[in-house]
Design a protein around this nucleic acid. Structure first.
Lengths: 118, 118
DNA sequence: TAGGAATATTCCTGTAAAGGAATATTTAAA
DNA sequence: TTTAAATATTCCTTTACAGGAATATTCCTA
């Protein structure tokens, strides 16, 4: 299977597209943290932190390690690597200064010969 | 101004985190297209295509060029470059196999000397 | 200037998701 | 085995947003 086009997971994107979760991710960039620390440093309540971490976990962005009472969360590299790969497919476009617009305009003209070759 | 931390725009992320819009973006990767073409190729109705394109436009992901009746949409490189830059700040983590977890565990131990050095 | 093509907008409705508050769960320690 | 700390979960309410259908807008052409 996996006859899909390259595409992109999207799950991670959806998870990151929420400000609080983005903050959590940027916080975890510097290393693993417990739920309490995350909540403290970001000024959010523990339940909200837990909920956001759950979403991040389900999206594969973070993983947990239990330490007795604590839950230590840390980033997983995979989704970031995936995003990086995906971005690669746009690299050509990112550098292109000649953007095919004129080509496309011409293309449209030809497809639409309202009048015969006058 | 711009005393912000590096961070990430987020607007683009939010826009991309919707399947149909992601499809539009991947379609536009190969070059500019009109609304009608986009709707056709993706099997969505014109109004929905217009709406999604509007969101993408407000997020700075696409830009329009008017051609008479038509609106030709194409990708803007900026948000992709921004994502790329942002991803760069995770590159260290992406490659790291030693993930500071042990360090952090030790750190937690020391911060919590419930009993004296027994 | 009337008509049609291409696109945008509006209104409505259903649903997913986020925050707040309370509570359940788990674990260590007394 | 009771208590407290750390975390997860549930319930509720509100809001954002996506799709559907209809309609408005813009522009070309006859």
């Amino acid at each position: 299977m996996s006859g899909h086009r390259p595409g992109m997971d999207m799950a991670a994107l959806g998870a990151l597209a929420e400000p609080n979760r983005m903050q959590i991710v940027e916080l975890l960039r510097d290393g693993p943290l417990t739920v309490g620390e995350i909540a403290d440093r970001l000024g959010m309540r523990q339940p909200q932190a837990s909920k956001h971490l759950k979403v991040l976990g389900e999206a594969g962005v973070v993983e947990v390690k239990a330490d007795a009472n604590r839950r230590i969360y840390k980033l997983r590299p995979e989704p970031f690597q995936a995003m990086d790969t995906w971005l690669g497919t746009f690299r050509r476009m990112m550098e292109e200064r000649y953007d095919k617009l004129d080509d496309y305009l011409r293309e449209l003209q030809e497809k639409e010969p309202t009048e015969g070759p006058q």
